[in-house]
Design a protein around this nucleic acid. Structure first.
Length: 473
DNA sequence: TGAAATGTTGGGGCG
DNA sequence: ACGCCCCAACATTTC
């Protein structure tokens, strides 16, 4: 409810307000919420309903096709205006246009508010008026824009109309998994809702941000904010994060603000993803760099399942995918490692990886997910150079030096020494036996040899480059 | 927001 | 004492 400009403006009219959430599984098409997102959505809506009730309001839940449902509800309730927060997914932008034209005929007001971003995607443009394609100039341009305003306080009191429209029961939506209930790890890891979001941010400022610059790449340490799902579901706004972090930075003076700067930069990465998605609506489906359209991905998809289950035989990769499956989240450094492994070592299309993340991440966000997968694959805007291939053993040693992260998520390897925890196949037969590891039985052998796979990927990418330069003008 | 291959340097062992 | 070789350590280039 805090920093929700649409809600605040509606309340400020002094007229009754009908808080409405429509579960529209048709309009987003392929991008309807995945399993983990549905779990989060359930709890987030439940929390929102409670907060609204405490302020004298009531959340109305309806399931259906938004462009059909909303005009019908306007007729039924006699609403004079609709207040909403702008979204940037291509289907959401279409929906917005459709609604505006539908409601114009009814002379019903349609008022749009920002809030999901620090800067609207149109605000930053190059000298020639084009959207940015490279992060650093985009970042600098954002820093030169007027600073985001201070966040709004939550409205304290909502007026209800004499007759509220009927609401679905949240439980009827069946957003939670049953048979099997795989959400135990999610419940352990998260507290969805505005209160949980506030606690995360507070904890981040108190305990984590000072070391953020040094520790955010360390999956074995609690070095990140873990705010992503809260941001994704609008439980906290980027302005609230920006404002509190900046204030914190000022209060600490010059020293120790490196972490705060690094965090604000990460928020701008999020802005950059939305900027790209807004200006290139095909981003979720097609490579940003067109030459990748005919890239020679492998036909062999048998390794995809091994990757999904965390059974590739590379401990840092498998740990990440098991963390994801258990908790609905994965450390950002490890996301890069597992993504590089899928796309470069296994030569499986980035879209397959993005689809898996979409279903399993509680923070599944169309802009971030699409832009980031394309970045790793080398086909995105300002992408990693094609020859950059992560070595899962070196990455493991560098960012999980004591193997604590691997041991946490792959207990069957826990007894291995630090020297071999990231490459069990190099451990001697004796030490493997002592540690209770039987390669190929208790833990898989590597599905591919990294050195060989790297050469194969470079050859395929080299081929792509040659085809492009050979192409007749 | 890499890694591997290749090049360079300098200290120490050794004939 | 001297030069040669080896190779770790670091730097640069290439993928």
């Amino acid at each position: 409810m805090a920093d929700n400009a649409a809600l605040s403006a509606a309340v400020a009219t002094g007229r009754p307000v009908i808080p409405l959430y429509i579960l529209d599984e048709k309009t987003p098409g392929r991008w309807a919420p995945g399993g983990a997102s549905r779990w989060w959505l359930h709890h987030s809506l439940k929390a929102l309903a409670q907060t609204l009730e405490a302020a004298g309001g009531r959340l109305v839940l309806r399931r259906g096709v938004a462009p059909e449902l909303l005009p019908a509800l306007v007729d039924q309730t006699g609403a004079t205006a609709i207040y909403f927060t702008r979204c940037y997914e291509p289907y959401a932008a279409d929906l917005e246009r459709k609604l505006e034209s539908l409601l114009r005929g009814k002379s019903v007001g349609c008022r749009r508010f920002g809030g999901n971003l620090l800067f609207e995607p149109e605000s930053a443009a190059t000298k020639t008026g084009q959207p940015y394609r490279v992060f650093t100039p985009f970042y600098k341009a954002c820093l030169n824009l007027p600073r985001p305003k201070a966040p709004l306080a939550a409205p304290t009191r909502l007026a209800m109309p004499p007759a509220m429209p009927q609401s679905d029961r949240l439980e009827e939506w069946r957003l939670l998994p049953d048979r099997p209930d795989w959400a135990g790890g999610l419940r352990e890891s998260w507290k969805p809702g505005e209160v949980g979001a506030g606690l995360r941010l507070e904890n981040f400022l108190e305990n984590t941000i000072a070391g953020y610059n040094d520790l955010r790449d360390r999956p074995d340490r609690p070095g990140t904010s873990r705010l992503s799902p809260h941001l994704r579901f609008g439980e906290i706004s980027p302005r609230q994060c920006w404002y509190l972090v900046s204030t914190f930075m000022d209060s600490r003076g010059a020293q120790g603000d490196g972490g705060a700067h690094a965090f604000l930069r990460e928020l701008i990465w999020r802005e950059f993803s939305y900027h790209l998605l807004h200006h290139w609506p095909s981003l979720p489906a097609s490579p940003f760099r067109a030459e990748f359209t005919d890239f020679a991905w492998t036909e062999d998809r048998s390794t995809l399942a091994a990757w999904q289950k965390g059974l590739t035989g590379y401990p840092i990769v498998d740990a990440g995918l098991r963390e994801l499956w258990h908790s609905g989240w994965m450390h950002n450094r490890v996301r890069m490692i597992v993504a590089s492994f899928l796309v470069k070592d296994l030569l499986i299309p980035w879209q397959d990886g993005a689809a898996w993340f979409w279903d399993t991440l509680v923070d599944a966000d169309l802009a971030n997910n699409s832009a980031s997968w394309q970045w790793v694959a080398g086909c995105g805007a300002d992408a990693a150079p094609y020859f950059r291939v992560f070595n899962p053993v070196l990455q493991g040693r560098k960012f999980d030096p004591d193997g604590a992260y691997v041991r946490r998520w792959i207990p069957e390897l826990a007894e291995l020494s630090n020297a071999s925890i990231h490459e069990p196949w190099q451990a001697g037969d004796d030490s493997l036996r002592q540690c209770g590891v039987v390669l190929g039985k208790t833990y898989p052998r590597p599905v591919v040899d990294h050195a060989t796979a790297r050469k194969r990927a470079l050859a395929a990418l080299e081929d792509l480059k040659r085809r492009r330069t050979d192409r007749p003008l």
